[in-house]
Simulated assay, not measured.
Amino acid sequence: MSYTFDVGDDTLWGPVNSVARIFLGTVKTLADEYRLPSGVGDDLMGMVEIDPVEFAGFVQRILAERASSLHPYKDMLLDGVLPILIALADRGRMGVTGRTPEENAYLEEVRARKLPMLAPGD
């Protein structure tokens, strides 16, 4: 079994259930911590709709937090989810960009990994 993370009719990602639940919990925690909408909709029986405008803003904010962080544990925690957020935003062509040299360096590093975001049928 797997989840689907969709923008409209396009499926961006289809992780297994456990990965999806961990991801959703982490996104909710970050949205609560930074008091901003994530753009990640509710889990509707394994289908999650992403609002591309809200999601792009969310990813930009988390990227900014990571790039300006001086706390090693915060860095490690954000490094667990931020590459997935960036890969989803890239796959959905949401236009996440670096606004500082630190953000650009982080994006370059993540994008160089070419993290596969396989959707069902890929």
Rank of each mutant, 00 (worst) to 15 (best):
M76I: 04
A20Q: 09
A67G: 15
S38N: 08
E33N: 15
G98E: 08
D90I: 08
S18K: 13
A119T: 00
G57A: 01
R111L: 07
R113P: 01
N17W: 04
N17G: 07
R35Q: 13
R99A: 12
D75M: 08
R21P: 07
Y3S: 06
R61P: 03
A67P: 12
D75P: 08
S38R: 07
M45F: 12
V27L: 10
T100K: 12
V96P: 05
M76H: 14
R66W: 09
G14K: 01
V27I: 15
L44D: 15
V7T: 09
T11S: 03
I22P: 00
Y34P: 10
N104K: 12
G25P: 07
R93A: 13
D122P: 00
A112M: 04
R35G: 11
T11N: 02
H71A: 06
V53Q: 11
G39V: 04
T100R: 13
D43M: 08
E109T: 10
R35I: 06
F58E: 05
P83Q: 02
N17E: 13
D42V: 11
F55D: 07
D32C: 04
E103Q: 14
M117R: 06
A105D: 15
A87R: 03
E33R: 15
D10R: 09
L107D: 05
E103H: 00
R99C: 11
L24M: 15
R113L: 14
I62R: 11
G41Y: 11
E108F: 06
T97L: 13
R111D: 10
N17P: 00
R66K: 06
E102L: 13
M47E: 14
